[in-house]
Design a protein around this nucleic acid. Structure first.
Lengths: 306, 306
DNA sequence: ACGTCCATGCAGTGACACTACAGGGACACG
DNA sequence: CGTGTCCCTGTAGTGTCACTGCATGGACGT
């Protein structure tokens, strides 16, 4: 039973197909298909079944993919067992974050890690829909993700995916500086029924929060634009093209925008680090993760995260 | 980090050298040496150090070998995860036992396993010293071993070695049928000070028990012969060449020999099954092990084993 | 009906792990 | 103190095997 093939099977599951798995594994689809065939022959039972033009894992395949995670964890533990005897942890860690999270955390993280000698950090920003965050763990080591506060957890959380909470960020209402509500200490959903909204794209993490706020006000929101980048959002808000929900620590940088706290409804997002369980065993990754947690605690203020 | 090399490292530890490890792995010493070199390069720290003309694992090597066990366990779990989806467990299991244990347990085990379709059993008998039992787990799947009752456990028991208790067997004194003590219900160590003894070879499992018995009598034992095979021992006893300690369920088959219970001193042996933790994950091995435990319970009588 | 996408099979090639053999150090013996 | 033996470690050679590239077939959408 080849460990490499097990890793491939795991990638096929999370990526949802042979071609996608081949991409993250830096292989051709043919190689992945052959590995699957060899693994199936070895296992004695079908591990995948064709579904349309793609394929899906059978129950046996799912079970084997679960076991593959444990194998990968054991292998990384072995590597970590040696790394303990090295004088200092070395290596490169790849971190990806969604835009606002990247702007909030990555600068501080980079300075922190620069102080630790021997650790290289490769950062990237990723703009993906809510349910695509877990699959990113195949491309990078640490994925800084976010999800609506109070929503469901991540699929596979625990066994397939390790989740480390970083911070909770309330969502405030961004209004133009000359807006009637700009001076208010807080607003309630009912105050906002007449506003035009600038929302994020469908399926992206905080999209549902606006719906919840509007539901509290009793009317569906009037969405004028769908913009993902909060700096663009603030520019539009400042120009009077609508109001928006923006994370408190991320927003408020534009001079023409005021943030007003939202009362009477629970609106916020959780920022969390996502890792594959095997990657979480690497010592360098743990060091970086520690710094990331510390940085998150600092930027979210002295108040406790949870 | 190659899983095969990790397995090799583990074998080098248990076998105590490159050549011995090469033998059990069905490789040449050169191949083992090269795998070790590659693994060391990968780990970044020395895993072995030369000691005389052999070699020994460094602390890092020990740690990595421990981790290698976990890797092997995870891989076998993966294989077992697939085997669950097969209609019935199949495969071959190799069992080895010391002579008297083999005579006691293997016939019944073979009939039991023959009733289970699809499982092949390969049996062998091994005559090794006490401290060589664990290393046998590299050659066969299940090692039926024995050790003096009350003695220390096996090295590496738990993490490196799985131990399954089978039965406890008291040691009786075998005397000729015409011996003055032959009719007695039990004898005490003091009754035996004048006897000549037939012992097992130095270092073999129950060698120390005789010393303990003699110590209770207050005089060192007079050992006339050292014979490992109990059927040979009984033949010598029947011919009047001395008395001996023999396991109760094993001995007493020779017509010219009587077994007398030993009172006033704790004399017995524990028969146990030894397995590598990864091998213990295989479903077929578990099935065979269940039958072995059941067989042991049957031959040791209705009394509880422990 | 056609184009696109995806998984799979087959031939070719390159890397890599093994065997065989030689070399060097360490212990035991005469 | 020399010699023999044992054991581990390098080097050259070879065979195996996994990957790439390309062609094929099926499925979905237009």
């Amino acid at each position: 039973m080849d460990v490499r093939a097990l890793e491939t099977l795991r990638a096929v599951r999370t990526q949802g197909g042979v071609s996608a798995a081949a991409t993250v594994l830096h292989l051709t689809p043919s190689a992945v298909s052959q590995q699957l065939a060899a693994l199936t022959r070895d296992a004695g039972v079908p591990l995948t079944e064709r579904i349309g033009r793609g394929l899906r894992l059978t129950p046996a395949g799912e079970a084997l993919a679960d076991a593959a995670v444990d194998v990968a964890v054991a292998v990384e533990r072995a590597r970590a067992a040696c790394a303990v005897f090295l004088d200092r942890p070395e290596g490169t860690v790849r971190v990806s974050a969604f835009q606002s999270g990247a702007r909030l955390l990555l600068p501080g993280l980079l300075t922190r890690v620069a102080a630790l000698d021997g650790i290289d950090l490769e950062c990237s920003d990723e703009d993906v829909a809510q349910d695509e965050f877990p699959a990113l763990t195949d491309r990078v080591d640490v994925v800084v993700a976010h999800r609506p506060d109070g929503g469901a957890g991540w699929p596979g959380e625990g066994a397939r995916l390790r989740v480390v909470p970083l911070l909770r960020e309330p969502l405030d209402v961004a209004v133009p500086a000359d807006h009637p509500l700009a001076g208010r200490g807080s607003v309630r959903p009912g105050d906002l029924v007449d506003e035009e909204w600038i929302a994020v794209r469908q399926g992206f993490p905080v999209a549902r929060v606006l719906e919840a706020v509007a539901a509290a006000a009793g009317a569906p929101p009037r969405i004028a634009h769908r913009i993902n980048d909060f700096s663009v959002v603030e520019a539009l808000v400042a120009a009077g093209h609508g109001v928006s929900l923006v994370p408190r620590h991320t927003g408020g940088t534009h001079p023409g925008v005021r943030l007003v706290a939202l009362a009477g409804v629970r609106a916020g997002r959780r920022v969390e680090a996502l890792l594959r369980p095997d990657v979480a065993e690497r010592l360098v990754v743990r060091r970086v993760l520690d710094e990331l947690v510390a940085e998150a605690a600092e930027v979210s203020g002295p108040a406790p995260v949870r």
